[in-house]
Design a protein around this nucleic acid. Structure first.
Lengths: 154, 154
DNA sequence: TATTGTTATACTCTATAACTATA
DNA sequence: TATAGTTATAGAGTATAACAATA
């Protein structure tokens, strides 16, 4: 029998924080330089959305503007991101990765991914297929960037 | 073709933080009283391991002793957990849930689970089956409590 | 007046270092 | 001396409230 949404929710609630703990620990331990999870997500977003505004990023990551402003402060201070006034609307801010930011993103992604891969390698190919399919399904309902494109009303 | 460990790692790295963001937000918004993710995890652990020491909890959750000490401070202050000297070894501490702690845990779990279930409900039964199977597989390689019982050497 | 950000303030989570108490 | 915890200190992440600048 297939699991109810409730049963499924229980499993997700049990396991996702567990995996997250490892991801966070890996990010902390991989220098070059170390990136926190939210920092990493901001860099990832900016990599795909060059010139995004602070609001764009905050909306996508799901944080308030002040929170995002502070995170960006840190990234700018570390020269991973540039913050310029938007030409045309001087209230807005235009964010972009520096070369250093691109390198940091790439490096963090590679290293964290590799350490996850190391653990995932002990699973069978079919188990990995299941995981990838599950991630796809979860992404479709948890990615706020995509919510707008679907009919999910909250 | 089935995904390589690397491809699988990439998906997990993309999607898990996304889901985690929602879990965290839900926990924050569900009063009764609101519990953070780490607090929730500590209560969950204590629910299954009555009388555990601070080190037991810290090891399981993957935090340092001072970090855990502080989290427990907060839980004790809110009367969700009791902290007593261990009889027999007075260096150790014996932690347990209060009745209020049990209620808070139950309530937070129900509410968060329900909101996850709401999102998961839009998926097909077979997608939910896939997710549950994926969670099972992920748990087997990310649950540090189980690592000791398997042959995973890190 | 509405929108975009920043600053001020406060709390939690997390770590390392230094310390206390017990074994 | 080694182990279990706590305290001190510091930094990141997060929020709400108040503010400034621009449209």
């Amino acid at each position: 029998m297939s699991p109810s949404p409730e049963e499924c929710g229980r499993e997700v609630l049990d396991v996702v924080p567990l995996v997250m703990r490892t991801i966070r620990a890996e990010m902390r331990h991989h220098r070059t330089p170390e990136l926190s999870v939210p920092q990493f997500r901001v860099l990832t977003f900016l990599n795909r959305h060059e010139g995004a505004s602070l609001s764009d990023v905050a909306d996508h990551i799901g944080l308030t503007l002040p929170s995002m402003s502070k995170i960006v402060d840190g990234l700018v201070a570390r020269n991973l991101v540039t913050r310029q006034t938007h030409p045309g609307d001087r209230r807005r801010v235009k964010l972009a990765l520096t070369t250093e930011g691109q390198a940091a993103l790439h490096s963090a992604r590679e290293l964290t991914q590799a350490s996850l891969a190391e653990r995932l390698a002990v699973l069978s190919p079919s188990e990995r297929t299941t995981i990838v399919q599950a991630m796809l399904a979860l992404r479709s309902i948890f990615d706020s960037g995509r919510e707008a494109k679907t009919d999910i009303v909250r």
